[in-house]
Design a protein around this nucleic acid. Structure first.
Lengths: 159, 159
DNA sequence: GTGCTTGCAAACAGTTTGCAGATAG
DNA sequence: CTATCTGCAAACTGTTTGCAAGCAC
């Protein structure tokens, strides 16, 4: 059994396990995901899916990818031009902590930052121009809020 | 002289140094950036700018932010829902190498990964649910291409 | 005076939503 | 049989572009 087949089976199993419907479109997308080596975009997947299902739609691809993401079976990598934030104080890469509830963004203190860029450059052959390290979670305030109600506070000015 | 004033002066100096025009709108935006503690969005900045310049436009804010980014004086943090990529093989955070020229994305090998999430959780009080570590640069192929022509190759299927 | 900059409006691109019809279980 | 899923089209959101008028130098 190849890697890809095993991964496909695992994904299928996860769908059934949670009692989500196993439609032909989903099966095909799962197979694509299991087989694809790289990091395809939704449009890439849609394009390949159309070979098999000429009438399928991008919306379905998105819905399925979102579902799989919620199941923890797909990692979504977002790139930008939506909801950008700007830092005019430290215009060089530094780690951020992002609260998933109030959207506050604070700079993270990372003890003894090794020179990650150089290490990665050496092992990969890339020339590294910059990087990005963000942590997602709940800030101390929102941890408390979450224990209580669902009052959806947003710390406007803290960003 | 406060931190904010010093930063403002530095930004102003940088503009003049490169012979970009010092317009009142730019001065106001620079002052905002130097004074703002957090990570404002373009809309945040626009909103505050309008107090001073009721006719100013978001487009101008974007243009100035982009300019400052190119000058290396502003760090742009992009969040997502545009050009997303999906990984159905390793649905947990792992570092990526992203080629800025051909947009290829490969998984990075990071020697002896420390447990960054735990370290950051301890120093910040956040509960960490995940993270993201991406390196931006030129892949080996594109380093060579760049030495030669400007033929804008795109490695479609490699992603 | 020259040409960079502004600000409006329209264009863009990827993603999301609403909904009627189809279908898996 | 019923609730979920599909697929179309329209809506959304943040960002970018084109262009005429304005202004820094």
């Amino acid at each position: 059994m190849t890697d890809s087949e095993a991964r496909f089976t695992a994904l299928m199993h996860r769908l059934g396990e949670r009692h989500f419907r196993v439609t032909p479109q989903r099966v095909a997308l799962l197979r694509l995901l299991a087989a694809s080596e790289g990091h395809p975009s939704a449009a890439d997947l849609y394009e390949r899916l159309r070979a098999e299902f000429p009438t399928t739609s991008l919306a379905t691809v998105y819905k399925t990818l979102t579902l799989l993401g919620e199941l923890g079976e797909v990692l979504e990598l977002g790139f930008s031009h939506d909801d950008n934030r700007y830092d005019g104080h430290r215009p060089y890469p530094h780690p951020h902590l992002i609260c998933m509830r109030c959207h506050r963004i604070v700079d993270a203190q990372l003890p003894a930052g090794r020179d990650l860029e150089r290490e990665v450059a050496q092992s990969s052959g890339f020339t590294i121009a910059g990087h990005r390290l963000d942590f997602y979670g709940l800030c101390p305030d929102c941890q408390h809020e979450t224990e209580n109600a669902e009052s959806q506070t947003t710390k406007e000015e803290t960003q």
